[in-house]
């Protein structure tokens, strides 16, 4: 009997606690998720995407001409879901747009105890205000440190890119993709995007490193990157592994129903055993 079958047999509260979520997630993998391909060799660092994002989501709209923001390395913040950074590399300046990776099996959604963080069936990972209790377990878990928090507010929100989920439902593309003047950003299903990325590497092997960031990282992500220089040089963590993050807690969650039913049985047994001893001693 494999482990999942065993869970089905044991049933009950504890079993369903662990199993329902895990199974639901496995099913989601059959859907065709959408994503975005960022080709860093095409990015000119104009930050039109930053502006478009701020406008689309009522966040900070940066003054890209005058704020000299490229001088420092930044991360997405509670005011900006996406930022572009400039890196000095062997081949000169490279610009990299950063935002939520929309992981296939996200750590943040596995962490969330209210499903406020949700992997939608279309692919984007969204946050829902009415459900969030503000525990920030999603922040502690995200391997890319993406969710940000409004610490200054009495009623704080978690802020992170949602791939313009509402625009997608109106049949539009994400605001950043639409704003990009060079085609460095491309929207599509992950399958299509992978094909395009491979074709680009195949046609220009001298221009690209032979790796698509996001193909396997943490089990695969919805956002993909192409690069002309090794990814470590442009701020990517390449030590995250290919295991989906929820896997790390799976063993524990599988053990829960076992203990939940096993321990009381064992303890009750012990209780009666010691009871008998007592009476025979007397």
């Amino acid at each position: 009997m494999d482990r999942r079958n065993f869970l089905k047999v044991t049933g009950g509260i504890a079993a369903s606690l662990a199993a329902t979520g895990l199974q639901a997630k496995e099913k989601q993998n059959d859907e065709e998720f959408v994503g975005v391909l960022t080709d860093t060799t095409r990015c000119i660092g104009c930050r039109a995407c930053e502006k478009a994002c701020g406008e689309a989501h009522d966040l900070l709209v940066p003054d890209v001409e005058n704020d000299n923001a490229l001088d420092n390395l930044r991360t997405p913040s509670e005011k900006q879901w996406t930022v572009v950074n400039r890196y000095e590399t062997d081949v000169g300046e490279v610009f990299v747009k950063q935002q939520c990776m929309h992981c296939w099996q996200p750590a943040c959604t596995a962490a969330c105890l209210t499903n406020a963080m949700l992997k939608t069936k279309e692919g984007p990972v969204i946050w829902r205000e009415g459900k969030c209790i503000g525990c920030r377990y999603c922040m502690a878990s995200c391997p890319f440190n993406i969710p940000k928090y409004e610490y200054g507010s009495w009623n704080p929100k978690v802020q992170k890119c949602n791939m313009c989920y509402d625009r997608l439902q109106q049949g539009k593309k994400p605001a950043c993709v639409e704003a990009c003047p060079t085609g460095a950003l491309m929207f599509g299903s992950k399958r299509e995007l992978m094909e395009i990325a491979r074709v680009r590497i195949y046609n220009h092997p001298e221009k690209y490193v032979h790796k698509i960031y996001g193909e396997h990282e943490v089990g695969g992500t919805g956002w993909l990157y192409l690069s002309g220089v090794p990814f470590e040089q442009i701020g990517f963590r390449t030590d995250l592994g290919t295991t989906p993050y929820p896997e790390y807690t799976k063993e524990f969650l599988y053990a829960v129903p076992l203990i939940f039913f096993g321990a009381p049985a064992l303890l009750t047994g012990l209780h009666f055993l010691t009871k008998k001893d007592e009476s025979s001693e007397e």
């Binding site: 662990a18 209210t114 209790i133 409004e150």
Partner: peptide, 21 residues
């Protein structure tokens, strides 16, 4: 951050079964 939403995971209108927390 939003303790008033704590009833979501308690009364069951939003169970994150696969969350350790």
């Amino acid at each position: 951050g939003k303790p008033w939403n704590i009833f979501n995971p308690i009364i069951g209108n939003s169970f994150g079964y696969n969350s350790v927390l």
